[in-house]
């Protein structure tokens, strides 16, 4: 069963440990701009209550995110998305994680990484025909 708090979703029966799921979800929210730098994260109490999980697990996730520089803990105030966080870097981390998960699934299906990559390329939406290069002269044609 999936439990949510805003955009953060966890599932206790997911094979990933709960703290890893929280870390992944916060990264995802930062990566897609739902949690911009400086925004506050829910308190440990709030998130543990909403997700019905052990507060130590939330704390563990927040510590991990702090180590990675994604969030900063301000004593007595709470946990915030680090003002200097580079969302492009976080996005890369989200992508890496997703890639690993996909490859694991592919391996389970007996697919080689190459076979999976090929299917991924095929599944990509067709790239639109390159737009005709703007005519640099068009503006001052008159």
């Amino acid at each position: 069963m999936t439990l949510s708090y805003g955009p953060l979703r966890v599932n206790p029966s997911d094979p990933r440990p709960l703290y890893v799921q929280i870390v992944d979800e916060v990264r995802r929210a930062v990566s897609c701009g739902l949690l911009p730098p400086g925004d506050s994260l829910p308190s440990v109490r709030e998130l543990a209550g909403a997700l019905r999980i052990n507060p130590n697990t939330v704390l563990q996730a927040y510590r991990e995110l702090e180590r990675e520089g994604v969030v900063e803990v301000r004593r007595g105030q709470g946990t915030f998305v680090a003002p200097g966080v580079r969302s492009s870097e976080v996005s890369r981390e989200v992508a890496r994680e997703l890639a690993h998960r996909c490859l694991r699934e592919a391996a389970r299906a007996g697919l080689s990484p190459d076979a999976f990559m090929e299917a991924l390329h095929e599944a990509l939406p067709p790239t639109p025909d390159p737009a005709p290069a703007p005519n640099p002269d068009s503006d001052d044609a008159s």
Binding site: G49, R52, P55
Partner: peptide
């Protein structure tokens, strides 16, 4: 369960 989690926190 939610109340317990909050209480523990």
């Amino acid at each position: 369960l939610s109340l317990l989690a909050t209480h523990l926190a």
